[in-house]
Design a protein around this nucleic acid. Sequence first.
DNA 1: CAATAAGGCTAATCCAAATTAGCCAAAGGA
DNA 2: TCCTTTGGCTAATTTGGATTAGCCTTATTG
Lengths: 206, 206
Amino acid sequence: MNTKRKILDEALNLFSEKGYGNVYVAQIAEAVGIKAPSLYKHYKSKQDIFSAILDEMKCSYDKQAASLNMNGNNAEADAEIFSVVSEDELVKMGMGLFMYFLHDEYAQKFRKMLTIEQFRNPELAELFTKQYADEPLSYQAAMFTMLGMNGILKEQDSKIMALQFYAPIYMLLTMCDRQPEREAELSKLLEQHIRQFSRIYQKEES
Amino acid sequence: MNTKRKILDEALNLFSEKGYGNVYVAQIAEAVGIKAPSLYKHYKSKQDIFSAILDEMKCSYDKQAASLNMNGNNAEADAEIFSVVSEDELVKMGMGLFMYFLHDEYAQKFRKMLTIEQFRNPELAELFTKQYADEPLSYQAAMFTMLGMNGILKEQDSKIMALQFYAPIYMLLTMCDRQPEREAELSKLLEQHIRQFSRIYQKEES
DNA sequence: CAATAAGGCTAATCCAAATTAGCCAAAGGA
DNA sequence: TCCTTTGGCTAATTTGGATTAGCCTTATTG
């Protein structure tokens, strides 16, 4: 019964590396440990498997968003934590986000598959942008707004601050997806980024 | 004789939208205006077409790098121009980079194809990172170093400055690739980013 | 303990897409 | 002008991969 489950897992695995069009059902079957025709006892076609993965993605999206926004808290709650904030807190938060995105197995495959398939499917394109750009940006914008009001950081356009904080995280992430062997180097760069970001936006008269 | 040329163009066109595995030679042929078998008078296989495109990419890489680094100048030369620099100059430069990447037809298709194929081919992954991350970053780091030494900007780690300057450009670019209809909104955001970046790194005692 | 459903297999089948064969017309140069 | 090359075509052919047919074993359940 968890063959059905395993099919989705292995298919996602393959799709995220090669893309739908370059994966053969026989490969999926082999990865699962069965023969190709047996797949059809569970899904009625290759496309059907793909759709099932998509559906799951869309469902698990909330789940994922929840775990991303740490502890299930919302931006305001986080900002309270950050009342004590300084550099180290921000580093911890940014690196945490980065490491989660990078190493969570499902998140990584999900992201890679969206990357590969984004231009063939507008729905995927939208999902991608929402999940990896719009949502994190608006979440962090809210956070920076809080920090600004609390007099911790300079009050600047928090939407732009979020962009400047998050875009390097995003970019380094895509680099690690391509070249995992550079993770150490790049995560060091990320930490430096956050520290410098923090210093620059810190209020002078502390 | 420029059928051979046209085949590459149309193939790149299709590959960049659908990915290698989802494009049929008949589609390429149709786009060119001939029948599929005629393709084989020019290239010996579908893979051969793909390889030819790759080769061209690798060759044209220098060409492209040249036009990217504006006017064929190098970072030092640009930095001299930037001796008079301020916000507007930086905006002009950043937006120029963005608009070039976004609208140059070849650059866009090239980038999309690399995006789609990056995980199937380590060579492509490397090329992608080099062209859209490492090179721009080191170019701009050099520029910021200059600006720092000339006392125009604060002296900070210029590698990190480059990351903070460029990563938003990169991220907004990928968003536009996915959702071209948001170009206006996103390029406005970009301009705000650069202005805020400029103000933040500007030396106080002007 | 039948009867049925689940889920696996092998052996077809089907089909679409890549590639080859072989013909033909136009171009162009000896 | 003839002969060769170039580049197109239609009509096979091949191939590989998705899907179906149909059988078998092992549970499950009435």
